[in-house]
C-alpha cells in the first residue's frame, strides 16, 4: 500500500492504495465517483476521460499514483452547483447522447478540445479530435453538433 493525495473536483483526497490501482478505479471505487466509465481495456474508447491538471486523460491507462498532487476534474465536477457547464447543456439541447455511457468521456474530451482549439470548431476538426472516443448509439451526428454548439457557448461565456 502506498499513500496518494490529489485534488478531485476541488476537494483534497488522500488514501493508501495498492500501487497497481488505476486512476479510474480510484475514482470509481474509492471515491465513488461513478460518472467516469470503463468501456474497454485497450485505451481505445474514451469513456474514462477526465482532466488531470487541465489535460484530457484516459483514466483507465493512468496509475493513480502518477497523479499524486494533481488537480483532477471529473464529469461530476463540471457543473457549478445547479448550473450546467455549457458543454453539458449543449449535449442535452442537441440530443448528443442516448444511453449516456460514452457521454462523460465525450463531454470531458470536448471541453478540453475547446480549451486547446478555441470556440470556433468546424465539423472536420471535431470529428478528427474525437479519434479517441467511441459512441455506439448516436452515430456521432448529434455529438458533433453538440460540441460545435457547446464550443460556441463556452466562447460566448468567456467573453
Amino acid at each position: 500500500m502506498t499513500a496518494v493525495s490529489m485534488t478531485v473536483n476541488g476537494q483534497i483526497v488522500s488514501a493508501d492504495i495498492d500501487p497497481r490501482t488505476l486512476l479510474v478505479q480510484f475514482l470509481r471505487e474509492q471515491l465513488r465517483l461513478t460518472g467516469t466509465h470503463v468501456g474497454c481495456d485497450t485505451s481505445q474508447c474514451g469513456c474514462c476521460v477526465v482532466h488531470v491538471n487541465g489535460d484530457a486523460l484516459k483514466s483507465c491507462t493512468t496509475l493513480a499514483l502518477t497523479c499524486d498532487g494533481a488537480q483532477i476534474v471529473t464529469i461530476e465536477g463540471l457543473a457549478t452547483g445547479d448550473v450546467l457547464h455549457p458543454m453539458q447543456a449543449a449535449f442535452r439541447e442537441n440530443h448528443g447522447l442516448q444511453c449516456g455511457f460514452c457521454t462523460p468521456g465525450m463531454i470531458m474530451t470536448a471541453v478540453e478540445l475547446v480549451r486547446r482549439k478555441g470556440a470556433n470548431l468546424d465539423e472536420h476538426t471535431i470529428r478528427e479530435e474525437l479519434e479517441g472516443n467511441l459512441c455506439r448509439c448516436t452515430g456521432y451526428h448529434n455529438i458533433v453538433k453538440a460540441i460545435a454548439a457547446g464550443a460556441q457557448a463556452m466562447g460566448a461565456a468567456a467573453e
Partner: peptide, 21 residues
C-alpha cells in the same frame, strides 16, 4: 422534447450496474 433522463447522464449521476455496490 429535450430528454428528461439527460440531466443525470450529463452530470455523471447515471446509475449503471457497475456503479452499484
Amino acid at each position: 422534447v429535450r430528454r428528461k433522463e439527460d440531466f443525470r447522464f450529463i452530470t455523471g449521476k447515471g446509475r449503471y450496474t457497475d456503479d452499484i455496490n
